[in-house]
């Protein structure tokens, strides 16, 4: 089997994650879409590491995970903070950028 199959799978997951961010309005689901995109990137990293015979790719994936964890903590805190004031978790309700 060609290793590029893994890459194709990674791309598919990434695109699905991106589409999720675009079409869903629930902030938590949008956020999960972002996580999916990060995971897809990680899969690509791991595959590349195997292709090049270099563990650095895995290390980078590891760092991505750590950063993603930090991001989740802050992101969810923001969602909770917004939910507290607006009683809504929909990204469309946060549209102060307009006007």
């Amino acid at each position: 089997m060609n290793l590029s199959n893994y890459l194709v799978l990674s791309v598919l997951l990434f695109s699905i994650g991106a589409t999720t961010v675009l079409v869903r309005r629930n902030a938590i689901i949008v956020f999960m879409g972002v996580e999916l995109m990060l995971n897809a990137a990680n899969l690509a990293f791991v595959t590349f590491a195997r292709m090049h015979g270099d563990l650095t790719g895995q290390v980078v994936a590891f760092f991505v995970m750590v950063v993603a964890a930090a991001e989740v903590v802050v992101g969810l805190a923001i969602i909770v903070a917004i939910y507290r004031t607006r009683r809504s978790a929909s990204v469309d309700d946060v549209n102060l950028l307009k006007s």
Partner: peptide, 20 residues
């Protein structure tokens, strides 16, 4: 997005895997 990225991947990933 999926389409263009897949074509990128298929184009770029033409390396003989070396394994770990």
């Amino acid at each position: 997005l999926g389409a263009v990225l897949i074509s990128v991947v298929l184009r770029a990933a033409d390396i003989a895997p070396q394994g770990l």
